[in-house]
Amino acid sequence: MEQFEFSYPARRKVPKRSHVGVVGSGDLEVLLEPLEGSTASVCVRTSAGGFQKIWKAVLDRFFSRYDGAARVEINDAGATPGVVLLRLEQAVEASEK
């Protein structure tokens, strides 16, 4: 298991928290909670070792479009970048509803 922390600038409040996904093979769970201030912080725990650069690239891309101030926790069981992005978008959608 590897653990990383990332942070990104944010510009707006997030309406509510959301939880999506499951820590099952090839999948992940995302917990998204509103945060005070103007940053988004991300904590990743992943079962697949050696992919820190790819996580950074995936999250950089996601946060180039997402500007909510949130604490995001990811528990990953070897999801591909595509699945990670879909789950993140699903978490955002649920938090805006």
Binding site: M1, R17, H19, V23, E29, L31, E33, R45, S47, N75
Partner: peptide, 24 residues
Amino acid sequence: AGPFDRIESPWLPLQNIVPQADDG
């Protein structure tokens, strides 16, 4: 006792296994 209560397994991370926020 949902996922945001974060009552997860204390034993899995010690064995290098990713836990789940609601422990499944």
